[in-house]
Design a protein around this nucleic acid. Structure first.
Lengths: 146, 146
DNA sequence: GGAAACCCTGAAGTGGGTATAGAGTCAAGC
DNA sequence: GCTTGACTCTATACCCACTTCAGGGTTTCC
């Protein structure tokens, strides 16, 4: 199948498919005489795997690791397990940080129940006088969990 | 004060301060004969406000809006309130999405309690056969909440 | 045979910085 | 006066995972 069809069946933008090829996540497809890429069902499977990983918010580097294990069926999958454990840890951490953030934001919001002149706005004043700087939530992994 | 001192008192990297100036968040500082930036306490206040907003995971565009209100003390702050409400909404949404993700990841992890050969790894198989594509959690605002 | 739909490459842009290279400035010590 | 080192300057490239764009070529349908 050509790239447009693969894009449709996989729900992936065409540019993203080409991007994955450039990044070495998808093997280069064969070409027609007119230089169009031709994909096999194996390509579709692999793309599905990649997209599933991305929907689980893994980085492309993590996906690369998982693909390596899929390509070596005899290797021990212990590293897969620990990769997932770490990933879960990142997500859990991010949830915790965001919950703290939400609490802080709600407290700030409560400082200005009804609109005033900006000069008297409890929110603007609250931001000004919050001396504490826990420094923006640590961003590691999972765009937002990362 | 010079940029190094401002960096220290504000806990902001020097490059970030220059970046904020380029982005128009901080007004350009006066210069010495040797072309060094000289900052006033007003600059420090404004930088503190910006950093506080960033620690609340607001985008620079949101910070720009808030600064505009700080600069117009007579304007009605209703827009500030709704900006914050929206931001809280984004954060809450992202928390929800991450919780669902965590659940999914933990279920996947449970599929491979002890290491096997990759070919039999319940995790790799689980990713393969998960047909559902809810499409990566919607990313809007709050690098991860956004 | 001509228009529309599809496909190609390569480069640049996104956000919010961070990191580098290569140069200039300034105060203190000898 | 001269060197050392700390500080600062500009300009540019890099990070991630794409997305968008410019400027073409190919295929298909009527």
């Amino acid at each position: 199948m050509r790239i447009g069809e693969l894009a449709q069946v996989s729900g992936t933008p065409i540019e993203t498919i080409r991007f994955y090829e450039r990044e070495g996540l998808l093997p280069a497809a064969a070409r027609t005489e007119g230089n169009y890429r031709i994909y096999t069902p194996q390509h579709a499977d692999r793309l599905g795997f990649i997209r599933q990983c991305r929907s689980l918010d893994m980085t492309l580097d993590e996906v690369r690791v998982l693909l390596r294990f899929k390509d070596q069926p005899l290797a021990d999958c212990g590293e897969v397990n620990s990769l997932l454990d770490e990933h879960i840890g990142h997500v859990a951490e991010r949830i915790k940080a965001l919950r703290a953030l939400e609490k802080e934001l709600r407290a700030l919001r409560a400082a200005c129940p009804v609109p005033h002149a900006s000069a008297d706005c409890g929110i603007l004043q609250g931001i000004d006088h919050a001396g504490a700087k826990p420094a923006a939530a640590s961003k590691r992994h999972v765009r937002g969990a990362h």
